[in-house]
Amino acid sequence: MIRKARLNDISTIIEIIKSTIEEMKTYNNTQWGENYPLDEDFADDIENGDLYVDDDCGHIKGFICVNFIEPVEYEGLNWSSNDKSMMIHRMAVNPRFRQQGVATELINFAEKLAYYNNVVYLKTDTYSINTKMNSLLKKCGFKFIGKINLFDKEKSFYCYDKLLKNFK
C-alpha cells in the first residue's frame, strides 16, 4: 500500500539510500552520495506532503517524492507540453524488494497522483549513467527530452517527460 511518508519512516529511508549509494558505486554512478539526499531533504518532503512510501505490513519497499517543484535548470528544454506538470524526485527501492515491480508501482502511483491533482503531465531527471532509472523511465513510457547539468556533477542529467492518459 502506498501512503504518505511519516517522520518515523526517515531512518528506514536513509538505510535504503545508503544501500542504493553502495550499489550505485558498483557501476560508477555518483548521482547520490554523502551530501545528497539527506535526512533534511526527506523531512522537508514529509512536511510538504510530497513523499510517499510503499509500505508492506510495516516494511518500506520503496519511496518516491512527487511535487510541483521544477528545477530552474529545466528552463530552455524543449518539453513535450507547456501544461502544468508535476515532478518526480528522489525515488529508490529497498534492495530486499528489488525485481518485484516496486519501482513500476511507484511510477504508476505518481501518474495517478498527478491525474488526481488535475495534472496530465509528469517531468523528471536522472543521472546519465544511472542505467537502472533511465531504463525504468523508458519502460514506463517517458520520453527523453534533453540534458542538463546539476549539482556540479561531471556528467549530465537526462530529462524525461510523459503526457498522461485518463485514469478510471
Score class of each variant (00 low, 15 high):
Ile2Asp: 00
Ile2Trp: 00
Lys4Val: 05
Leu7Gln: 12
Leu7Arg: 12
Ser11Ala: 14
Ile14Phe: 08
Ile21Tyr: 10
Met24Asn: 03
Lys25Trp: 02
Lys25Tyr: 08
Thr26Tyr: 10
Tyr27Ala: 06
Thr30Phe: 06
Tyr36Cys: 11
Leu38Ala: 11
Asp41Thr: 14
Ala43Cys: 07
Ala43Ile: 13
Asp45Ser: 12
Ile46Phe: 06
Gly49Glu: 13
Tyr52Ala: 03
Val53Glu: 00
Cys57Asn: 15
His59Asp: 14
Lys61Leu: 03
Gly62Thr: 05
Cys65Ile: 03
Val66Met: 10
Val66Gln: 07
Asn67Phe: 05
Phe68Gln: 14
Glu70Asn: 05
Val72Leu: 08
Val72Asp: 15
Glu73Trp: 07
Gly76Thr: 05
Trp79His: 07
Asn82Trp: 01
Lys84Ala: 12
Ile88Gln: 03
His89Ala: 10
Met91Phe: 10
Met91Val: 12
Met91Pro: 06
Met91Arg: 02
Met91Gln: 07
Val93Tyr: 00
Phe97Thr: 01
Gln100Glu: 14
Gly101Tyr: 04
Thr104Cys: 09
Glu105Cys: 07
Leu106Pro: 09
Phe109Leu: 09
Ala110Asn: 01
Tyr115Ser: 09
Tyr115Cys: 08
Asn118Arg: 08
Val119Asn: 05
Val120Gly: 15
Tyr121Ile: 02
Tyr121Arg: 09
Asp125Ser: 14
Asp125Gln: 06
Tyr127Pro: 00
Thr131Gly: 12
Thr131Pro: 00
Lys132Glu: 11
Met133Thr: 06
Met133Tyr: 02
Asn134Gly: 03
Leu136Ile: 03
Lys139Arg: 13
Phe144Met: 10
Ile145Lys: 09
Lys147Ser: 13
Phe151Asn: 13
Lys153Thr: 06
Glu154Ser: 14
Phe157Pro: 02
Tyr160Cys: 04
Lys162Ser: 07
Leu163Cys: 11
Leu163Trp: 01
Leu164Asp: 06
Phe167Asp: 07
